[in-house]
Simulated scan of single mutants.
Amino acid sequence: MMTNILIVDDDIHILNLLTIHLSKDGYQVFQAKDGVEALDLLQEKSCQLAVVDVMMPYLDGFELTKKIREQYNIPVILLTAKNQIEDKEQGYAAGTDDYLVKPFEPKELSFRIKALLRRYDSRADDSVVRIGHTTIDKKSYEVQTGSRTILLPLKEFELLYFLMSNPLQVFSRDRLIEQVWGFDFSGDERTVDVHIKRIRERFSTLTDDFQIKTVRGVGYSLEAKRS
Rank of each mutant, 00 (worst) to 15 (best):
residue 47 C to N: 12
residue 47 C to L: 02
residue 48 Q to C: 04
residue 52 V to R: 01
residue 52 V to L: 12
residue 54 V to P: 12
residue 55 M to E: 15
residue 55 M to N: 15
residue 55 M to W: 15
residue 55 M to K: 15
residue 56 M to I: 06
residue 57 P to S: 08
residue 57 P to Q: 00
residue 58 Y to Q: 15
residue 60 D to Y: 04
residue 61 G to D: 12
residue 62 F to Y: 15
residue 62 F to M: 15
residue 63 E to M: 09
residue 64 L to K: 11
residue 67 K to Q: 14
residue 67 K to E: 09
residue 68 I to E: 11
residue 69 R to A: 07
residue 71 Q to E: 04
residue 71 Q to F: 01
residue 72 Y to T: 11
residue 73 N to Y: 13
residue 74 I to P: 03
residue 74 I to M: 01
residue 75 P to E: 13
residue 76 V to R: 03
residue 78 L to C: 12
residue 79 L to Q: 14
residue 79 L to R: 08
residue 80 T to I: 12
residue 83 N to S: 15
residue 84 Q to D: 10
residue 84 Q to P: 03
residue 84 Q to I: 11
residue 85 I to P: 07
residue 85 I to N: 06
residue 85 I to A: 12
residue 89 E to D: 07
residue 91 G to I: 01
residue 94 A to V: 09
residue 95 G to M: 01
residue 96 T to Q: 04
residue 98 D to S: 03
residue 98 D to E: 06
residue 99 Y to H: 00
residue 100 L to I: 15
residue 100 L to T: 09
residue 101 V to A: 09
residue 102 K to Q: 01
residue 103 P to S: 02
residue 109 L to Y: 10
residue 109 L to C: 04
residue 110 S to K: 06
residue 111 F to Q: 14
residue 112 R to Q: 01
residue 112 R to S: 01
residue 115 A to G: 14
residue 116 L to P: 09
residue 116 L to D: 11
residue 118 R to G: 05
residue 119 R to F: 07
residue 119 R to A: 13
residue 121 D to C: 08
residue 121 D to A: 07
residue 122 S to T: 08
residue 124 A to H: 04
residue 126 D to E: 08
residue 129 V to Y: 00
residue 133 H to T: 10
residue 133 H to V: 10
residue 133 H to P: 10
residue 133 H to M: 01
residue 134 T to V: 02
residue 137 D to C: 02
residue 138 K to N: 07
residue 138 K to P: 02
residue 138 K to D: 00
residue 139 K to V: 05
residue 140 S to K: 06
residue 141 Y to V: 02
residue 141 Y to E: 00
residue 141 Y to L: 08
residue 141 Y to F: 09
residue 142 E to N: 05
residue 143 V to H: 00
residue 143 V to C: 06
residue 145 T to M: 10
residue 146 G to S: 04
residue 147 S to V: 07
residue 147 S to T: 03
residue 148 R to I: 14
residue 148 R to S: 14
residue 149 T to N: 00
residue 150 I to L: 14
residue 151 L to S: 15
residue 152 L to M: 00
